[in-house]
């Protein structure tokens, strides 16, 4: 019985962690290139909404996911334009994007309230093989998931490889550390930053689509429920490293999934509900001071607009 309980907590934890993972890896890329995007929540909900709308119209989850990625990408370009081209304040622009996404989907989603997603449009977990899924405790969590979840792990590992093991990765990181030097070496700083912000937007859109296509198939307002903010914190928690982001996201997911199993033991729900946010606050505070950030390896030019020829 106890093994079964842990097994389902792990299973749900990995599912809950998947949108966090995609959004976090996307933000890692944006921040590695020097663009702080606090609009994850907004891009995510735009993605979630698009996925629901397309899924309902076409009954194709993969088309819905692609559309969500495109919508997230489009939304991120607003932020990219303001922060890269207009050199606006990235914090304000990102916050505006979040509010924009929440407001837009709330207005546009009015007619979707009460509509359910057709079964064919949903992504449903099913065992890779019955024998593997039957392994006690970890079998269900590792081998009884949906393809989207495996895809998100694959994307994260791939993006880790690109960031640390390829020349492109060096280019991206150098743009985030010292854009002037990168520029002097002939790197197009603006193009790299646009591309990384756009990738972040696409992944945030995909993260949103996982929520409406698999995790909570349906539409209600504010369906992302603050996951974008957790992703912002996880980016720091993961020290801007996609591999650590996998561990961090699943840890958050499992903590979230496990809390209610503690309620019968006498823990109050107020305490339990606070755990993920307490974790978030601790990480954000830890990452807030300049020396800590340096120690943690934050991109040196993070949030600083780059102006060619200016020092």
């Amino acid at each position: 019985m106890q093994a079964e309980l842990i097994s389902s907590v792990l299973w749900i934890g990995l599912r809950s962690g998947t949108p966090l993972l995609l959004a976090t890896v996307g933000e890692i890329y944006a921040e590695r290139s020097g663009i702080l995007n606090l609009g994850i929540e907004g891009m995510m909900i735009i993605g979630a909404f698009t996925a629901f709308a397309v899924g309902q119209a076409t009954s194709s989850p993969w088309l819905a996911m692609a559309a969500a990625a495109a919508a997230g990408l489009a939304a991120s370009l607003i932020h990219a334009f303001i922060s890269i081209h207009l050199r606006g304040n990235q914090v304000v622009s990102g916050l505006a994007l979040t509010m924009f996404g929440l407001g837009l989907t709330s207005v546009a989603g009015g007619t979707f309230v009460g509509a359910a997603l057709p079964r064919e449009a949903r992504i449903i977990p099913s065992p890779l093989s019955e024998e593997l899924a039957a392994i006690p405790v970890i079998g269900k969590a590792l081998f009884d998931q949906d393809p989207f979840l495996y895809l998100s792990i694959l994307i994260s590992v791939l993006l880790w490889f690109v960031l640390y093991k390829t020349k492109l990765g060096i280019v991206i990181r150098s743009v985030g550390e010292n854009p002037a030097a990168a520029d002097a070496l002939g790197v197009n700083v603006y193009a790299v930053r646009y591309a990384c912000t756009a990738l972040g937007g696409a992944l945030a859109g995909m993260a949103g689509s996982y929520i409406t296509l698999s995790l909570r198939p349906g539409w209600v307002e504010n369906i992302t429920a603050g996951r974008g903010w957790i992703a912002v914190a996880l980016t720091i928690f993961a020290l801007w490293d996609p591999l650590k982001a996998i561990a961090g996201s699943y840890l958050f997911g499992i903590v979230e999934a496990g809390t209610y199993n503690l309620q019968p033991l006498g823990f109050s729900q107020w305490l339990l509900n606070a755990i993920p946010y307490v974790l978030t606050v601790v990480i954000l505070v830890a990452g807030a001071t300049e020396t800590m950030r340096k120690k943690m390896g934050a991109p040196a030019a993070l949030g600083v607009p780059y102006v060619r020829g200016e020092k």
Binding site: S8, L215, I223, A225, G258, Y260, N261
Partner: peptide, 14 residues
């Protein structure tokens, strides 16, 4: 919705 889903899953796991 998130907490409701977590609570429901926790009940099912029991």
């Amino acid at each position: 919705p998130d907490l409701a889903a977590d609570a429901a899953e926790s009940l099912i796991s029991e």
